[in-house]
């Protein structure tokens, strides 16, 4: 069975070609902004100040910038892992489940660990969470490699298994027996991630930023990165070129799951103070947007994470400043992403 060579996901064209037609970009942006304005107006707000509030609200005070950076952390970490998978066109839709498994297994380790010295406990818990996320991703990769099970279906369905699994774990084995609600004990203070100097943001952000050059190097300068990109261009061709695609897919899924697991455990140690039924915040899905909006490139993902985090925090602010329903803000956020997508595409024409 021969297959065509589909266009590679990441094209490198000359800089000049990427400018495209500014008229197109402006046009696309204008259409979406007008639509968004209509939504805000219908919802009872003032469209012009609403747009301004998203940006000025988020960057207007130290506390909201802190909130924004807090949102960036999981999006960046998961997004980096997804970018690697997506460059290989391995559609991991299961980051949400991998995030949850990392959060719960790593969190359980932190709570149950006999050693309670921060120097040991924090790195160990982070590693355990990462490994757990990688293992959840490994299932998907292995199913694909051994039986040819499509990764979209297994990763998607494993999200549900993870959600129900966590619900069971916090209701029974991990439940704090002295407490009323189905939730674990507090994460011991020795395991809490410290805040970064001068910021109220936990160290997970720093970990994410450290991984940015690492991923750039790995994808751009190593045989592994090359193989993943070949895989993404054409699986059959990659096989023909002597790449063990099955092994590579398993590896890619483990890395991608590991990043999601790391994001999960970092969130538990840094923000959520215990394990409960409310850990599935949707970062695993939102990060799909950041990964693709950032064109699957680490620096792009930093920017797209900041963008998504800004409209998330700004959205909560607009809800209050304009007295519009939160649902209107979801619509606005979606339109923002669509503008960016279309403008980006037209600019590259």
């Amino acid at each position: 069975m021969t297959a065509p060579a589909p266009p590679p996901a990441v094209r490198s064209r000359r800089w000049k070609d990427r400018i495209g037609s500014p008229v197109n970009v402006v046009g696309a942006a204008a259409v979406a902004l007008v639509l968004g304005a209509g939504v805000i107006a219908v919802a009872g707000g003032n469209p012009i100040t609403a747009y301004a509030d998203i940006v000025t609200g988020t960057f207007g005070s130290r506390s909201t910038i802190t909130l924004m950076l807090g949102e960036v952390t999981p999006l960046l970490l998961i997004g980096l892992g997804l970018a690697i998978a997506f460059q290989g066109r391995v559609w991991n839709i299961g980051a949400e489940g991998q995030y949850l498994v990392g959060a719960v297994v790593g969190g359980a380790f932190a709570i149950l660990s006999p050693v309670q010295a921060s120097v040991v406990l924090i790195p160990a818990a982070l590693l355990v969470g990462t490994a757990a996320g990688a293992a959840w991703g490994w299932i998907v990769g292995k199913f694909q490699a051994v039986w040819g099970v499509n990764e979209v279906i297994s990763s998607l369905l494993l999200n549900y298994v993870a959600i129900f699994g966590v619900a069971y774990l916090v209701r029974q084995p991990l439940r704090d027996p002295d407490y009323y609600l189905p939730q674990s004990k507090l994460i011991p203070s020795a395991a809490r991630l410290p805040d970064l100097p001068f910021l109220d943001v936990h160290a997970g952000l720093l970990i994410g930023l450290i991984f940015v050059p690492v991923v750039i190097y790995a994808m751009g300068r190593t045989p592994f990165g090359f193989k993943v990109r070949v895989l993404g261009m054409n699986r059959d061709a990659a096989r023909a070129a002597g790449i063990d695609t099955n092994r590579l897919i398993v590896k890619v899924m483990m890395i991608s799951g590991g990043f999601a697991g790391l994001a999960g455990i970092a969130q538990v140690l840094g923000v959520e103070s215990r394990l409960n039924n409310n850990l599935d915040a949707g970062y695993g899905f939102t990060a799909i947007i950041t990964a693709l909006l950032g064109r699957m490139r680490p620096l792009g993902i930093v920017l797209s994470s900041v963008f998504i985090a800004t409209i998330t925090v700004g959205g909560d602010i607009v809800q209050r400043s304009q007295q519009v329903p939160r649902a209107a803000v979801f619509v606005l956020q979606a339109l923002f992403v669509i503008v960016l997508l279309v403008a980006d595409k037209l600019a590259r024409r």
Binding site: V39, V42, A43, F86, W91, F285, I288, I289, L292, L293, P325, A327, A328, V329, F330, V331, Q333, A334, L335, V337, I338, L341, V342, D344, K345, L346
Partner: peptide, 22 residues
């Protein structure tokens, strides 16, 4: 427009969720 299909889909789900509620 040929923008990335995966992202289009997820964004439209977000859009439809907000718009139907509203």
């Amino acid at each position: 427009f040929k923008t990335e299909q995966v992202i289009n889909g997820i964004v439209i789900v977000l859009l439809a969720g907000g718009a139907t509620s509203l």
